[in-house]
């Protein structure tokens, strides 16, 4: 801060000073902001929990005050991290097209869904602590689930469209509940299943539901 103040008169002579100075500050602020987000993300992915502000500051190499200058509440910082990870998982999602044999589509869907859920697992697990009190988190979960519904309907359209409306709805609900990210979390964190085994369980449930040949 003192260095900044001392440097200011010198740059003032250089011309176009005000602009440059603000830009420099913005740049530094943005840099700090990124460091805080990255530190939070690393902590969430390591601990599967919401880090404390002091831990974030330590990891980012900034002051606690600085964290609060950039994020008024830890909740909003957590939402930024959540959006970042979820956004990556969603942009990497490769759609399963409604063509080809059912068994192959189940295999592809389960494999990709498992990879996506595994990626989101730490931040989703941590989110449980804030979901009840965070409208932002509730809204994000809603949007994510709507997207998953579209993915399921697309991949299994031939089978779903053959069903009566009531059966179709029930089948879709069953698929959605089975393939929910919280179901993945339950298998991984609470049932202690390794990735391949949890994936095999999904495969079994979906194959059974859709009546594919085993």
């Amino acid at each position: 801060m003192t260095i900044l103040a001392l440097a200011a008169p010198a740059t003032a002579h250089a011309g176009g000073n005000a602009e440059t100075r603000i830009d420099g500050r913005n740049l530094r602020a943005e840099h700090t902001r990124r460091k805080i987000v990255a530190a939070t993300r690393a902590l969430v992915e390591e601990t599967f929990a919401l880090p404390k502000v002091a831990e974030i500051a330590l990891r980012a190499g900034v002051s606690v005050r600085s964290v609060f200058q950039h994020f008024q509440e830890v909740d909003s910082l957590f939402l930024v991290v959540f959006d970042e990870i979820l956004g990556e998982a969603q942009s990497e999602w490769e759609a399963v097209e409604p063509i080809g044999p059912l068994a192959g589509r189940i295999e592809a869907f389960v494999t990709r869904r498992a990879a996506a859920c595994e990626r989101v697992l730490p931040v989703r697990f941590a989110a449980i602590a804030v979901e009840a009190s965070s409208p932002g988190m509730v809204e994000r979960a809603k949007v994510a689930r709507a997207l998953t519904r579209q993915n399921i309907e697309r991949a299994f359209r031939p089978e779903l469209d053959r069903l009566q409306p009531n059966d179709r709805r029930q089948m879709l609900d069953a698929l959605r509940a089975a393939l929910d990210w919280d179901m993945w979390m339950t298998m991984r964190r609470f049932h202690g299943l390794p990735v391949e085994e949890a994936q095999a369980v999904w495969h079994k449930i979906i194959t059974g539901l859709m009546g594919a040949d085993v």
Binding site: A177, A178, D180, D182, M183, M185, T186, M187, F190, H191, L193, E197, A200, V201, K204, I205, G208
Partner: peptide
């Protein structure tokens, strides 16, 4: 694998979902 799947399908998280 079958027992794991039976338990997952009837798990309270599934019911909650």
């Amino acid at each position: 694998q079958t027992v794991d799947a039976l338990l997952a399908a009837s798990d309270w998280q599934m019911w909650f979902g």
